[in-house]
Write a protein that binds this DNA or RNA. Structure first.
Lengths: 220, 220
DNA sequence: CGAATATTCCAACGAATATTAGAATATTGC
DNA sequence: GCAATATTCTAATATTCGTTGGAATATTCG
């Protein structure tokens, strides 16, 4: 084997990862799995695709070793094969946000731009949350919250906010987050809260972004 | 536009980046461009492909905004559109190295495994280099060295080592680096130096890895 | 065991992609 | 303006990929 053949082989292997992340649906599946492990039909339902198609995409992700499957009774649960996979998704999205004008305008135009956080903002958010000056709410489904959430955040799933809104203090700032910058749940939560007179805002970070920034999550 | 359509659009955009990095040749081109800007025929020659094909791949990378082209007289120089692109390449390769068994065995088997560095090792290498306890040599072509190199490293291109070997101190440890873990130049340099009685070793880092680890480069 | 559920496998189609060859374009230097 | 050089564009082909429908597999529950 000469140098050229060796190199071809090495880049070929890395391209397997590239190919795995070259499909929009697979990226969506990865982002969903970055929240918590999920079954095939849960993934299919959330991504709005047929179960067979979801299964096919998951097979590709599995072949690239980005996800692992585990049978649990009648269901098969998929999960990311490591934190680094989640970090790769964040990196891809960040590069896209940075360079693709089309994505920038899409995100600006469609829903109110989520607050991008820098290291300092993240730090100050945490100290305010620790002191109780702000209430950080995680509006994702409870299973995702349980799988890992921002420190000091309390679970308040989007579809329970209406009923449970009185649990929130009316005199404090409320900060909502969900699955990340592409997720619209926190925006809906903020609208809902503001309609009820709360001071609410959202942040762009989800747990994947938080972790990719080198900050710890809490698992309950 | 409903939520599903918006999401489809967003993931579609990110997948443009994914598609761009789904080809082995494009990854190789990205790694080459992470060293320094280069012309189309230089890239084609280094990657071992036809100029037309290189041009086609570069067009794809350009459409994904990962590279930018600038005409310089008769030549057109391509360069990465940002540091984050280089970081994306490193991330992809790292994920591949971590999860793909095939890549692990390929790297172990073919040439002696390069030393993976952790934060502590990098720090100690720099302080030894600063004190002059080790001599760090950059064995890439001079243009790449000029475009950015490790602090305290001196340029000693692979194909000049034979002639210039006496410039190196025989009583000190020599540490060679090149374009990264896939590049074989530092391994060749080490073999050459050891044959001449030098205490030489290589590290896996190139400038992209160094930078991705959050450490600064020097430009001359 | 047999029905129900969850998931995967297989086959097939059209769409997108990589690669190659040949023509066309843009710039430089005479 | 013309020849030389560097690069891109166009067209053509083989291959791969995404998606869908129907059949097959594995597990649980009665």
């Amino acid at each position: 084997m000469n140098k050229r053949q060796i190199k071809d082989l090495l880049y070929e292997e890395v391209a397997r990862i590239g190919k795995a992340v070259s499909s929009p649906k697979r990226l969506e599946l990865l982002e969903l799995l970055a929240q918590s492990e999920k079954t095939v039909d849960a993934l299919a339902a959330e991504a709005g695709i047929d179960i067979k198609l979801a299964s096919a995409h998951l097979k590709v992700l599995k072949a690239a070793r980005l996800v692992v499957a585990q049978r649990d009774g009648r269901f098969i649960a998929y999960r990311l094969s490591g934190e680094d996979v989640s970090a790769l998704w964040v990196k891809l999205r960040t590069v896209a946000e940075e360079h693709l004008v089309e994505l920038k305008v899409a995100m600006d135009g469609i829903f109110s731009a989520p607050e991008k956080l820098d290291a300092e903002t993240r730090r100050s958010l945490m100290s305010k949350a620790r002191r109780g000056d702000v209430v950080v709410i995680d509006v994702r489904p409870t299973a995702e919250y349980a799988s890992g959430h921002l420190p000091f955040a309390r679970s308040m799933p989007l579809d329970e906010i209406r009923q449970r809104i009185k649990e929130l203090p009316a005199d404090k700032d409320i900060v909502a987050y969900c699955r990340g910058p592409f997720c619209m749940m926190s925006a809906e939560a903020v609208t809902l809260l503001q309609e009820h007179g709360y001071r609410a805002q959202k942040i762009a970070d989800g747990t994947a972004e938080w972790q990719a920034a080198g900050l710890p999550l809490t698992t309950s």
